[in-house]
Simulated assay, not measured.
Amino acid sequence: MTTLDHLVYATPDLDATVAELEASLGVRAATGGRHPGLGTRNHLIGLGGRSYLEIIGPDPGQETPAGPRPFGIDELAGAALVSWAVAVEDIDAAVARARARGHDPGDPRDMSRRTPAGDLLSWRLTPPPQAGRGLVPFLIDWGATRHPAESGLPPIALLSLTIAHPDPAAVAGRLAAVGVPLDDGGPRLVQAPRPHLSAVLSGRHGDVTLA
């Protein structure tokens, strides 16, 4: 069984989006760190347990990367909930299981970043989507690294996560392949004219929807 690791809220203007979320949610996202070579940096908000919201955008302190920034950031006109990740303890085994069930998450790769305090975080993940909406989550394995959600992030409550698609059955099999439960507290899968993700968070003035 996989569990929610984090939601990815991508934006072309990280500082502006962090300020907007602070106004609506009532908490200031903690500084995460830079992703060397990718041209991005992030801020984080805890969602309870070992789950968090990642707000990610361009890092003006880095040179323009050789390739496109992840999650289609270079093409975004505004902030959007673009993807999500589920945590696994043995990513190679999880990828093998998914492939045996008809879904290929991609080959895991190593990544790392420094925290503001200078600590090195290292993890392995399958390739996130470069553009579009990542309805099926990518996989992440933190290994022996201390999980970001355990570093005292400002907390809010995640009330729901919804996956929408014109043909939900086409997505359900891929979700099952990576071990995502669609009941018993898992995300909701619904039919909609266009594919998209949406999450409802508990904010200062009421519920806040990220889509």
Score class of each variant (00 low, 15 high):
43 H>P: 01
45 I>P: 01
32 G>L: 01
55 I>M: 07
47 L>F: 03
17 T>I: 03
23 A>L: 04
18 V>R: 06
11 T>G: 09
22 E>C: 06
43 H>K: 07
45 I>C: 03
50 R>F: 07
50 R>L: 12
40 T>I: 01
25 L>M: 08
38 L>R: 13
44 L>D: 05
13 D>Q: 11
38 L>D: 06
11 T>H: 05
34 R>A: 14
25 L>S: 02
46 G>D: 10
51 S>K: 00
21 L>H: 14
37 G>R: 13
34 R>W: 13
14 L>C: 07
39 G>L: 08
46 G>R: 02
13 D>P: 13
41 R>C: 13
21 L>W: 08
18 V>M: 04
49 G>T: 13
37 G>V: 14
43 H>A: 15
20 E>S: 09
12 P>R: 04
21 L>E: 09
36 P>C: 10
50 R>G: 12
42 N>L: 11
53 L>H: 08
54 E>Y: 04
19 A>Y: 08
19 A>E: 11
37 G>Q: 13
16 A>C: 07
30 A>V: 01
19 A>M: 04
41 R>Y: 08
52 Y>Q: 04
42 N>H: 11
34 R>T: 14
22 E>D: 15
20 E>H: 15
35 H>Q: 12
28 R>N: 04
25 L>C: 05
49 G>Y: 14
37 G>T: 14
13 D>N: 15
50 R>N: 15
37 G>S: 13
53 L>Q: 10
37 G>H: 13
33 G>M: 06
